[in-house]
Computed example of a mutant assay.
Amino acid sequence: MKKYIVIYSLAFVMLLAACADKEYDVEETQNNSSNAGVKTSAPVSEETEKLEVTMYNQDKEKIGTTTIRPVYTGVKITLEATDLPPGMHGFHIHENGICEAPDFKSSGGHFNPTGGKHGFEHPEGPHAGDLQNIKVDQDGNVFADAAAEMVTLEKGKNNSLLKEGGTALMIHSGADDYKSQPSGDAGERLACGVISE
């Protein structure tokens, strides 16, 4: 009789252990399936996860890189560059994805799909491509984050930076005054980078 009680007890313990393993497997599967969306190359929103943009100066030399990432309110632009004149500089998104040195006029005007006026201080502004000024240190280096709340990386949208032909990032020689038309009196174009897929 004792022999059967021992056998039944062992069987019961093994059954509990099997159930525990099964619950763990289900939980692990659920965790893996929820993480699967994070690791996919195409997000659910079909937006590009991030873009790397190479910045070139008027002599066609690489001076830095910019990373553009989608955020809840538009995109976040992180600029890291060197060999620039110290001081404040205008920083904008331009309408054409073309950076022909030395003047970069091929990039056109500011990206402006809404038809607004230039500048954060203009009552009918800003352009979608207007960004905050950047500050270059005494050694010619800059590391800055900029928020662009009126644009997206989602293709097919009117305000997409990945429109046909692309767009461009531009660093100007002077500071943007946030009100003068059409570009904030920011001076000549010092550096340019093409935004494209």
Rank of each mutant, 00 (worst) to 15 (best):
I63T: 03
K135F: 14
H122C: 03
S183W: 03
E100I: 07
A101P: 07
K50H: 14
D130K: 06
F111C: 02
L162K: 01
G97A: 06
T167F: 02
K179L: 12
D176A: 10
Q30F: 08
G64V: 05
T114P: 00
V44F: 02
V75A: 11
V136S: 05
G90A: 10
D177Y: 03
G174W: 01
G129V: 09
I93K: 04
G90S: 08
G109F: 06
K117C: 13
G97W: 04
A147N: 11
K50S: 15
I171D: 06
M55H: 07
C19M: 14
G174Y: 09
H172P: 05
H118Y: 13
H118T: 07
H89A: 09
M1V: 11
G187E: 13
N112F: 04
I98Q: 06
K117I: 05
H89I: 00
Y72T: 15
I93W: 03
C192K: 11
E197Y: 08
A18E: 11
A81H: 01
Q132M: 12
I171W: 07
T73S: 14
K105C: 00
L79P: 01
V53I: 15
T67P: 05
N32K: 15
G140E: 14
Y178Q: 14
S196M: 09
K105Q: 10
I134D: 02
A144F: 03
N35A: 07
L84A: 01
L161E: 02
T78M: 06
K3Q: 15
E149H: 03
M170E: 13
L84Q: 00
T48Y: 08
I77S: 12
M150S: 07
D177Q: 10
V151L: 04
